[in-house]
Structures are given as C-alpha cells and as structure tokens.
C-alpha cells in the first residue's frame, strides 16, 4: 500500500445545474472545449490505440492502410487513365492525391457519427468533456491520413512530380480542415446519438458526393461552364483548398471564399447545436 497513488483534485469546485440562459449554456460549452483540449494527451492515446487495435496481430500493422490505398490507386489509375483518355504520368499523381484526401474526408464524416455512441461506456461511467471524444476521432483519422501520405509521396517520386513552393499553401487549408473536423464531429456525433438513423443517411450522402465532386475526374473535364459551378459544391471547395496547392497550383480565390463561408456556417450550426445538446447527450446514449 505504500505505493498508493495520492489523489489528484481534477476540479476543486464544480456545479451542475439546469442551464437555461444562453450565456450559461455558452459558458459551459466553452468549459467543455477547454477541458477537452487540456486532455489532448488522452485524446492522442485513445486515437492511437484505436488504430493499433484495428491492426493488432497483423504483420504490417497500420501499413495495411498504405498498402490497400496503393493497390487501389494504381488499379484505378490505370483503368481511368484509359477510360478518360488521360496521360498516366499526369493522371496517376492527381488520383493518388485526390483519393487519399477524399478518403480522409469521407472517413471523418462517417466516423464523426459514432463519436459519442462508441464512447458510451465511458460517458456513462465518468464525467468527461465531450470535446475529448471529438479530438479522439480527429486524431484517429489524421493518423490514418499520415499512413496514406506515403502513397502520395511514392507516386510523386515515381512520376517525378513536385508541387514546389505552392505546396506550402496547403497548410492553411489543412488547418481549416482540422477546425472543421472538430465542429462536424460535435454536430454529427450529438445528432447521431439522438437520431440513430442518421448514419446511413450520412453515408449515402457521402457516396453521392464522391461522384459529383471531382475526385476521380478532373475539374477541367467539365469545361469552363462546369468549372464555374463547382464552388457551389461544398465538398469541392474543401477538397480543393488542400489539393490544388499540392498539385502545384495557386488555389482559386473563389474556392477559398466558398470554403470559408461553408466553414463559418458549419461552426455556427455546430456551436448552436452543441450548446443546447451538451447536457442531454448522456441521456441519449
């Protein structure tokens, strides 16, 4: 018993009460986010363990992700290069990048739906900031993305493609992605805890989005008229702010305007929902 761990007072004074006023709801939601950020180490560990568990006992571990992405990109690349009559040296690097980035977005949207429902045992047995589970989902998906980046780099090396200094312009886009991902997770995570039939709806929306968004086909294939309409597709704007710089192009101003507008709408929606839903999530699970 001599080694017993001494108590750590994680909070000296807390108060839970029916929160009715807007300012109080906002204050509590801010506190939730703050506490969640402070637990970043736990979020990181949880996300990392999620990945480790998926591939525990397999020889390649998480690099199965890399391998399966590589196989899919090369198979699709050769096929679609023929179908779309594209130069393979030009098309394959585009496809590798698009496919990996889209894979990240699609998995993130889909997994944000189960953020709170999969954490039910924890939520029901200990008080934790809900934001912790949002960061966990983000960490997990960023780790998957990091494994898949290997495919992009490999394809770029094989075909001698290099985005140049413009590639750095992808960084602000990636930052926006992270913030949007957390907002989306709080929104969809709570919404899906309340309404259990959202997940299949979200998945079918993402499937349609995959085909109407230039992921496997190039925006230029639409012709000038079509390209002008693309910014109305939020998925296109979000994808393009990161993809265009990595292809060595300057990102279009309209695309950034669109991405910021959609992001602002998302943040507003997510915050409005989370401040109201936060005290109820435990009851919904």
């Amino acid at each position: 018993m001599s080694q017993a761990v001494t108590p750590i007072a994680r909070e000296s004074l807390v108060e839970f009460r029916a929160s009715r006023t807007m300012s109080e709801r906002n204050r509590l939601a801010v506190r939730d986010v703050g506490e969640g950020l402070r637990l970043w180490r736990l979020a990181w560990t949880l996300g990392w363990l999620d990945i480790r568990l998926r591939y525990r006992g397999s020889m390649l571990g998480p690099f199965w992700l890399t391998l399966s992405t590589a196989i899919m990109v090369s198979a699709l690349g050769y096929l679609y290069a023929v179908l779309f009559r594209q130069e393979i040296a030009d098309y394959l690097p585009f496809l590798a990048l698009s496919q990996v980035l889209w894979g990240f977005l699609a998995a993130l949207v889909s997994e944000s739906c189960t953020t709170f429902t999969e954490a039910e045992p924890v939520i029901r047995s200990v008080r934790m900031p809900y934001f912790l589970f949002a960061t966990r989902t983000l960490v997990r998906n960023v780790l998957v993305l990091a494994h898949n980046v290997v495919v992009i780099v490999g394809v770029d090396i094989i075909f001698g493609v290099w985005p140049g200094a413009n590639g750095l312009l992808a960084l602000p886009g990636l930052v926006l992605w992270m913030v949007d991902a957390l907002a989306l997770t709080m929104l969809l995570g709570g919404f899906c805890a309340r309404f259990r039939d959202i997940l299949p709806i979200v998945n079918s929306v993402m499937q349609i989005a995959f085909f109407v968004t230039p992921v496997i086909w190039k925006p230029s294939q639409l012709g000038p008229d079509g390209v002008a309409h693309l910014p109305f597709n939020p998925f296109f704007d979000m994808l393009e702010i990161v993809r265009a710089p990595l292809l060595g192009a300057e990102p279009d101003r309209m695309v950034w305007v669109g991405a910021l507008a959609y992001s602002l709408a998302l943040w507003g929606l997510a915050w409005g929902f989370f401040t109201r839903a936060r005290p109820r999530i435990a009851y919904w699970l």
């Binding site: 909070e11 004074l13 807390v14 108060e15 839970f16 009460r17 029916a18 929160s19 939520i123 029901r124 047995s125 200990v126 008080r127 005290p279 435990a282 009851y283």
Partner: peptide
C-alpha cells in the same frame, strides 16, 4: 458524478 446534469435544481461538488 456529473454524468447526468439535472433537469431542475443544482448539484455542487
């Protein structure tokens, strides 16, 4: 434990 927030009233810990 703060898992369920009360609908009415308050809890101070």
């Amino acid at each position: 434990a703060g898992i369920y927030e009360p609908a009415i009233g308050r809890v101070r810990i």
